[in-house]
């Protein structure tokens, strides 16, 4: 356990100092800061535009950070030979793998938390409210995004044990896109009788294998308070558990491959 915590702590410290991640984070923060000015572009309600835009910025920025941060975690350690100084100590490969993942997710969480705080400040200033009842629910979106991004990071970690970083970047990005959008496409296929059964079967297979990232998108009720999720707490807990189970499966696959990887 000591080894996992130490490796996670070091990975976190390295991650928050990586310039490329800081730049992505800074771009996200800049967009969040200028968000109140965007209401002039839309005739829709100020609140709808602001919440929709800022949550979109947090999601996109976090996804980029999650992928860029994770695809290089293991390859960098191998290239710089740091991994040898660690694995020759009484550290198991799975401990190294899990430690790296936990460190990355912690760094991701800290950056997302900072963006969430900024989102709430921007919203409070623009709406002129300090009412916690209005402000606190805004954190639900980023909270679910955090589970989504942790899952995305697990996909990248798992693949990093198998493929080169550049390929991993595009693969993980592709899986995220498909996993986010495919839920809607799948439902359309299932409901539409005109769709060929083979297409339906393939879409069913894709849905069974790929994580459904769309599950974590809870923007709609936040953007439009009239829309509510039935049994909200259960939905959040269930979705979070779905994410955690998927993360564990992906990490186990990654560890199995990494255990046999010649570094």
């Amino acid at each position: 356990m000591n080894a996992i915590v130490s490796i996670a702590r070091t990975t976190f410290a390295e991650a928050i100092r990586r310039k490329v991640l800081f730049i992505i984070f800074l771009i996200g923060v800049t967009f969040l800061a200028v968000a109140p000015g965007l209401n002039v572009l839309s005739a829709r309600q100020e609140r709808t535009v602001l919440v929709g835009f800022t949550l979109g910025v947090i999601q996109l920025t976090s996804a980029l950070i999650a992928i860029v941060l994770t695809v290089y975690l293991i390859p960098n350690e191998i290239e710089r030979r740091t991994i040898y100084t660690i694995l020759c100590k009484p550290v198991r490969r799975w401990q190294f793998f899990v430690g790296k993942y936990l460190g990355a997710v912690t760094a991701l969480g800290v950056m997302m938390a900072a963006m969430t705080v900024l989102l709430i400040i921007v919203f409070a200033l623009q709406q002129g409210t300090r009412d916690p009842a209005q402000l606190a629910p805004l954190a639900k979106g980023p909270l679910m995004f955090f589970f989504q991004m942790s899952l995305l990071a697990a996909v990248a970690m798992c693949l990093s044990a198998m493929v080169q970083p550049i390929l991993n970047f595009f693969l993980t990005g592709g899986i995220y896109l498909v996993g986010t959008l495919f839920g809607t496409i799948f439902e359309t296929f299932q409901e539409n009788r005109g769709v060929h059964p083979v297409t339906k079967a393939i879409s069913q297979l894709v849905m069974s294998i790929l994580p459904n990232f769309g599950k974590f998108n809870v923007q709609n009720p936040l953007i439009n308070p009239n829309q509510q999720i039935g049994n909200e707490s259960m939905y959040y807990i269930g979705t979070a558990l779905y994410g955690v189970v998927y993360i564990i499966i992906l990490l186990l696959i990654g560890i199995l491959v990494f255990e046999r990887k010649e570094v």
Binding site: N2, A13, Y84, T85, K89, V91
Partner: peptide, 30 residues
């Protein structure tokens, strides 16, 4: 692994850490 040690050729040590922190990190692995 408890009784051996390895110094690879041109290794990279986490640059943000100080010399003391590096030793603390590796010590924690034991």
């Amino acid at each position: 692994h408890k009784i051996i040690s390895y110094l690879p050729e041109k290794p990279y040590y986490y640059e943000h850490m100080t010399g003391m922190e590096i030793l603390r990190f590796y010590a924690s692995l034991f």
